[in-house]
Each structure stands twice: as C-alpha cells, then as structure tokens.
C-alpha cells in the first residue's frame, strides 16, 4: 500500500533555508519524510505529507522552521469550538468529564 497523503496545499510549514545549519534534527524527528538533506542543508521535499506535529520546529537549532502545530483531530476541533479553547486532544484530567474520548487519549 502506497503512502496515505492528506489534503494538498494546506499545511502551515515554512523553512527558512538561509538559517539552516545542517544539524539534521528535522530529518531525524519528522515521521513523514518531509525533509531531505541537499548540499548539507535541509530542504522540504514532501510538504503535503506534513501533519503539523511541530517536532521539527521545536528541535530546530537555529529556529529556521515555523509551523502552526496542533492536532489534526475533528473531535478536538469541535470541542475547542464549543468550549472556546484551542483544539486539544480530549481526555480531561478530571475523570474524563469534559474531555472527548477519541482514540488519541490512549
């Protein structure tokens, strides 16, 4: 089975190639092979595979990467809209009272 790819041209991922110092952290942490090292610099080669998890931006040594990270989860977005908060993966810490119970919680 070939790779599953989500909607094209939606992600907020940006890489400032000028700032890259070639530390490879983004290549290491990305779970979807979005980056490739080309001439000792990281390049985005598969942008639509990005799921905006934010691991690369967090671990980029030179802050060359920006992404509006968050959970790609409809239940979290609905809950966020109802409660007026950011979409957070459900499961509240008080006995699941206010959380949604999507599979992400386990």
């Amino acid at each position: 089975m070939s790779e599953l790819i989500y909607l094209p041209d939606v992600v907020t991922l940006e890489l400032d190639a000028e700032k890259c110092n070639g530390c490879r952290m983004c290549v290491i942490v990305c779970p979807h092979e979005v980056y490739k090292m080309i001439d000792k610099r990281a390049r985005i080669v598969n942008r639509d595979a990005c799921m905006e998890c934010g691991a690369c931006a967090l671990n980029c040594e030179t802050e060359a990467i920006t992404v509006e990270s968050g959970v790609g989860c409809a239940a979290a977005i609905i809950q966020g809209a109802i409660l007026g908060t950011e979409p957070v993966c459900g499961c509240s810490e008080e006995n699941g009272e206010t959380g949604n119970s999507n599979a992400c919680c386990g």
């Binding site: 599953l4 790819i5 989500y6 909607l7 939606v10 992600v11 907020t12 779970p31 979807h32 595979a49 990005c50 799921m51 905006e52 509006e68 990270s69 968050g70 959970v71 790609g72 989860c73 409809a74 239940a75 979290a76 977005i77 979409p87 993966c89 999507n102 599979a103 992400c104």
Partner: peptide, 13 residues
Amino acid sequence: TGSSTYTSLSGVR
C-alpha cells in the same frame, strides 16, 4: 482523523 497518523490541524479544519 483524530486517530489517524497523518492528518494536520490545517487540513482537518
């Protein structure tokens, strides 16, 4: 989408 391993927040929105 919440259980999948490849959906992005922007995409789901």
